[in-house]
Design a protein around this nucleic acid. Structure first.
Lengths: 195, 195
DNA sequence: TCTATCATGTAAAGGGTTACATGATTCT
DNA sequence: AGAATCATGTAACCCTTTACATGATAGA
């Protein structure tokens, strides 16, 4: 009977991740977006409150306290069991080629929240997969550039080269971070399969 | 009498930049977005054609040929004098702190088109300004991180550190590219003031 | 002629931006 | 009590996404 969930927006997942860390009010969440470098999401009430309402009507978040329900008073929200499951399911999604090309921001967001509620092998696998996708993408870019370079204006070339270098750096970061995660957490063994 | 120009979208400027290189049809432009790594803009007709219409009704672009005007036939567009002026005015805008924080993509787009229609000193100044803004931003991030680090999950830290490293790399790119531009173009002298 | 592709467009739905409204709390 | 701030919400507007419609052209 429930409406089709549609696709959750990136903002909704950012809100979920923060609510997963700690129950908070919409205002608190807006303050985070407004006053910290937390990946630039909108602190505008017209974005945040409707997003929270969508999550609430989907049953993913619920008011924390026993409904004081006074008009216009602080209303802290928490993740429900369903919301927690949905959020974890999102975290478990492997990166896709399309996301690498069009939405790295979202991949970073997901990875940043990943150690919150997921077995430690997942982020490592995620980085390994991301690295492969990035390398494949980079190869495509290099091939394109070799052939398109001549038609590009000087500043266009500089931007393109910078883009490729950023990807190379991200590839290196994937490798480095994978090792860092392996070193800190499960020193050895015990990499339980996650069903 | 004309409607307030509102603010042009990033997509509109991407289209302007491509039309400035060469008159083309909407279909051609969509193919570029669909088949090249050109900074991921939408190739969807529902985005491209309305955007072209807006530019046309603003008088920035116009049909190339003497109105064949047959229904559903290819319709190449070119920049008008007004459009060319508007586009150049956009290119001349210096980067802002806000854009550095929220919209690097747009700053890269602008720089990529910059050598098309603007005196060569402009991109160099642009890079110098961008570098200063990035360094200031980076300092803010470092200060924040020193204090917020302890509350962040491991993967969150990794993402944050990667973000800062990307900025450092971009700062280095600004310096390198500024020199490259100075070296290639005006080997010496002749850096004419711009109006 | 039939079909695939070229080429432009429109309609519905949805989310974000901006601006405004309004109730509660706290401090002076 | 008055003012500033906390806190939530709404309304108009605009752009993008998705899906569909439709006309022209080229090749089998």
């Amino acid at each position: 009977m429930s409406k089709a969930p549609r696709h959750a927006t990136t903002l909704e997942f950012a809100l979920l991740g923060l609510l997963d860390q700690q129950p908070q009010s919409g205002y608190d969440l807006r303050r985070i977006f407004a006053t910290t470098p937390f990946t630039h999401y909108s602190d505008s009430p017209g974005a945040v409150y409707p997003a929270l309402r969508r999550l609430e009507s989907r049953g993913w978040v619920a008011p924390l306290a026993r409904a004081p329900m006074s008009a216009r008073r602080r209303r802290a929200l928490r993740l429900t069991a369903v919301g927690s499951r949905g959020f974890r399911a999102w975290l478990m999604q492997p990166p896709t080629r399309d996301a690498v090309v069009h939405d790295m921001e979202r991949l970073y967001l997901r990875f940043a929240f990943m150690s919150q509620a997921v077995p430690p092998a997942v982020p490592r696998r995620y980085l390994a997969a991301l690295r492969e996708l990035l390398e494949a993408h980079l190869e495509g870019l290099e091939r394109y550039y070799a052939q398109a370079k001549r038609a590009m204006p000087p500043t266009g070339r500089l931007v393109f080269e910078h883009g490729m270098e950023e990807i190379r750096q991200t590839v290196a970061w994937c490798a480095r971070s994978g090792q860092a995660l392996a070193g800190s957490r499960s020193g050895r063994g015990k990499e339980g399969g996650v069903s």
